[in-house]
Design a protein around this nucleic acid. Sequence first.
DNA 1: ATAACTTTGCAACTCGGTTGCATAAACTTT
DNA 2: AAAGTTTATGCAACCGAGTTGCAAAGTTAT
Lengths: 136, 136
Amino acid sequence: MKDTDDKLISRNMKPTAMRELVLDALLEQNVAVSLSDLEKKFDRADKVTLYRTLKTFEENKLIHSIDDGTGSVKYALCAENCQCNPHDLHVHFFCTKCKRTYCLNDTPIPSVTLPLNFEIKTINMVVKGTCANCKE
Amino acid sequence: MKDTDDKLISRNMKPTAMRELVLDALLEQNVAVSLSDLEKKFDRADKVTLYRTLKTFEENKLIHSIDDGTGSVKYALCAENCQCNPHDLHVHFFCTKCKRTYCLNDTPIPSVTLPLNFEIKTINMVVKGTCANCKE
DNA sequence: ATAACTTTGCAACTCGGTTGCATAAACTTT
DNA sequence: AAAGTTTATGCAACCGAGTTGCAAAGTTAT
């Protein structure tokens, strides 16, 4: 029984071949991936299946989605016990040179004071600039 | 000579009729508007013209764009002397009930500590929840 | 094995954003 | 003021990301 199977089962998903492939792909990345990234990686696989796989993963809180402003949503694995609550959230970083989107897992989103009677549900914070790899 | 004309001219744009209309529409709003919002408001006007008007405004730093995660970019007026530098930036708020996107001009984006050798150029921070109007 | 449900694959569509090109309007130069 | 140049507008058409419907294939339960 594979490790990926456990992950899927523990998040209440059936461990299908497709899901294992996609999960493996996500595990070996340290950056967030888009649907079209996956399409390129698995050129035999159908776009819609990949799309629905990601949706299923997201619904079951195995991954979270990041809107990095590039026009294509990115996805990355959640931490082991992540419930995607506001205090689980971290800052994301988009490198304008290599176009990679990083999860800054050690950089929690700072709290902000909102105007009176504004109630927060979630936050999206994306820093853009150049990453360590691209710096010289 | 209209007030909107001054604004346009001072930002190096010719005050055409179209631009005045769009600028007026932006001035009378306290929320950010999308291209399709403008299309609805000016149903006689061409989508592309509105699109290019917004682009021109943005290039000349009369307005800034907000990616609030809804899939359509919103635009709002910049403050008088805004140069859209990182320290000019403010938090945006998207109300999930009324679907309005607010500029929280008085809520500057808090600074974050990035991993070593990551260099910041700009930040996008969108808080989602319910606004004061929608609270009860 | 059969029935019931779930997952996958194909086709096709929506919608926001964008480009090319032709026309119209506004400035410039003589 | 007329001719030429630049700038803005309008139409058509396209692109890519995301999405839905439906039928086929696969899985699970009886």
